[in-house]
Design a protein around this nucleic acid. Structure first.
Lengths: 181, 181
DNA sequence: ACCTGTTATGCAACTATTTGCATATGGAGG
DNA sequence: CCTCCATATGCAAATAGTTGCATAACAGGT
């Protein structure tokens, strides 16, 4: 249900084609909401049918038509209604943590390797987020509200990645001994 | 795909009926994997068909039959194979953060209220986790491996909740001013 | 010339999860 | 006695998300 509002919010920021939205979801919105291009095009189609967004098809010679979408008044109203409704927290579902409940079936060496990969993963994320912060949100206090809110979302990404790295410190210590440890 | 392995891992710990598993998912596994009882019964049925678990139906007078499941050797092998496969991180999808991208459509007062509820939510979680830690994992170093791994998962829950509270400090400050702020 | 990657759009089938319903017992409180 | 809640098990329909495939043009390297 929330993908559609993520799309409306993104289009409310700036009108865009499906492809451009897909880009944004992979970059600026990666720490907020993930969606594949297939999902995005499908949902845009539905939103269009329901009149929450509208599109001008701009034919291009020798290329597939561009279809930039923008939010309609109906769409903006729907978005506002949703925004005013408190959302339940998403369910926790982490395969990595599941592994920790497998007891004697869990191989320490394999796990240690996976944790090392994970550390790399979050180190990269954290660096990327901090770069964005340093480039775009240098002086948060002077930013217009809109960007301060986005900064807040980014902060959540940064704190989240930092916390994973701190957890990995604890976890890797537990898996650093020999397998039998 | 991972629910089945969560079930296998849980059953590998201790054999149990669907209902008991459902309880465990709501309590001790809540910070690891969430699943409804419907999902659990359905998946247990599939696992049974595929021979990864087996069950004795124990008829009870005047009550629905008890059906305690336990992992078969085939099941344990399947679990080990999965455990040895690095799992991709779950996709990030947080409706709360989506809201922060809605710009001028976002009502500050409503958001402030939602954040207050969120703080309560994570405060409760954190207290519950810390209680469990104090009761069951007093002295982690002396615990058998199995419980140290579970403690690690709990630690992840604790660090996660603490981080949300720290983020809320930043977020609530941003929303504490008047609406127009 | 050919292969690969990026731009640009989507359909179809499958899997995972949610939501609503169904059934039956036993205990607690009004 | 009647109602509500916990125990205990599930089926069926709907929604959400993943995976595989298809098309087509242009740009860059080998």
């Amino acid at each position: 249900m929330a993908l559609r509002y993520a799309l409306l919010a993104a289009l409310n920021e700036t009108p865009a084609t499906g492809y451009e939205l897909s880009q944004r979801f992979r970059t600026r919105l990666a720490h907020v909401w993930n969606a594949s291009h297939q999902q995005i095009y499908r949902e845009l189609g539905k939103l269009h049918e329901e009149g929450l967004v509208s599109a001008e098809t701009i034919p291009q010679a020798d290329k597939p038509d561009r279809k930039p979408y923008h939010v309609t008044d109906t769409g903006r109203t729907a978005l506002r209604t949703w925004l005013a409704t408190p959302q339940p927290r998403p369910a926790t579902r982490d395969p990595l943590l599941v592994k920790l409940f497998a007891g004697d079936c869990l191989d320490g060496a394999a796990m240690a390797e996976e944790l090392a990969g994970l550390r790399q993963h979050y180190r990269n994320r954290l660096r990327a987020y901090r770069d964005i912060e340093a480039t775009w949100f240098k002086d948060p206090a002077t930013l217009p509200r809109r960007y301060r809110l986005q900064h807040l979302a980014l902060r959540r990404g940064i704190l989240g990645a930092e916390t994973w790295l701190r957890w990995l410190d604890e976890a890797q210590q537990a898996f650093s001994g020999t397998d039998a440890d």
